[in-house]
Amino acid sequence: MQSYWEMQEHFDVIPMDRQAYVEEVMDHYKNPRGKGKLEHADFCAKDENPLCGDEISICAKVKAGKLQEIKFDGHGCAICIASSSMLMEKATGMKMEKALKIKREDVLSNFGEISPVRTKCALLSLKVLKLGICSFLGKKAPLE
């Protein structure tokens, strides 16, 4: 009879996250776009990742239903900061309704393969942006 341990597939340590730290990601992390304070914002939202204590706030100025200017602030790991920076680039000038339709996959695709724990880091800024837009529009925020 096979022992319990023999029945298990041999599993090696898989270098999963490494692919997340590609050049483009590192560039956004080291030179984040749209990071800082935004004066006279029309809305601000903030949330944190309870697992690691990462915290991101996003403020935006709105004009004609569009995110005219948008900035993020806070602290987090490379994945969290890079993804916030990428989101600022992507969402600037975007219609709020359209920004609400940005999908998880759109964000995650920037990182190649990423472990389930780290997806929370990558998705924090998107969550905060949607929270902010929803409260500004008086809509119910999406669950996740």
Partner: peptide, 27 residues
């Protein structure tokens, strides 16, 4: 950031904890 350190150490087969270690007032 500790999270990045832990993720990169994992690639070397080293398991450590990163985060607030369930002790936020201490941190």
């Amino acid at each position: 950031h500790p999270h990045d350190v832990a993720a990169l150490l994992d690639e070397e087969g080293i398991a450590i904890r990163a985060g607030h270690a369930c002790a936020q007032p201490l941190l």
